[in-house]
Nucleic acid binder design. Sequence first.
DNA 1: ATCGGTGCAAATCCTTTGCATTTCC
DNA 2: GGAAATGCAAAGGATTTGCACCGAT
Lengths: 128, 128
Amino acid sequence: MVTNKNSNRKRITPQRQVILNYLKKADCHPTAKEVHTAVEEDLPRISLGTVYRNLKELVEEGKIQKIAGEEVRYDWNNSSHGHFICKECEEVYDISLNCEDLIEKVQVGEVETCQVYFYGICEDCKDN
Amino acid sequence: MVTNKNSNRKRITPQRQVILNYLKKADCHPTAKEVHTAVEEDLPRISLGTVYRNLKELVEEGKIQKIAGEEVRYDWNNSSHGHFICKECEEVYDISLNCEDLIEKVQVGEVETCQVYFYGICEDCKDN
DNA sequence: ATCGGTGCAAATCCTTTGCATTTCC
DNA sequence: GGAAATGCAAAGGATTTGCACCGAT
């Protein structure tokens, strides 16, 4: 089930490439639909289904992160960080933190990825 | 937006009561559908829509937690803790940890709730 | 020629919602 | 009595999937 390096099963398609590149450059946390809209500029014929398929695989490969807030969003940057999600405007902010300390506490299994979510009202919304 | 003690707007219905009691007693992390199936024993006519409505309100009141893993699950226990989610069997384990330390790092807004997820393979699955 | 990936559209699944009815204060 | 909650069924939205076709090895 694990991808075998010797097998040339997985292809790097332009679609996959464009999606990953977009997520790398984007300093936001787009939804699948937003990714689709964005990559359509480069690949006008790309379908939403393909975007979903590629996002799923990129997550499984660990190249991107899936953020499960009120809406599902995606994030490049597999470095250790959390997310603050504003209940008001639904904006997502990156929060740098060290997950290693947390992972140490886990005994029930081997941790592959760690995600931290903070929910609240962001400063911008509080000021209004 | 905060529930006003003087207003008698919110009713404590048997449905709400049964749902909350079930979550309190259950030492698992049920999905909405599982909650529905469970409470049907006490309230045979309860609808899935009502379960969703009540779960949503209980989350907003802070009485229960919504766990957004691969599937959405619910959890009583508002004490500070995280969840380990097994990629293989999808079992959810409680991980006790102190969120306060994490919350201190957040500058972008006031944190109301904090959730920590660990993904990996649990010991049970690894042994097989 | 083959086999994985794609586009398209239909199907599926989860959750929300409208509305008539019931329930509780 | 009247607001709020319910049950039911329909609607909505996000994601997945089946299938014929395309493209790279």
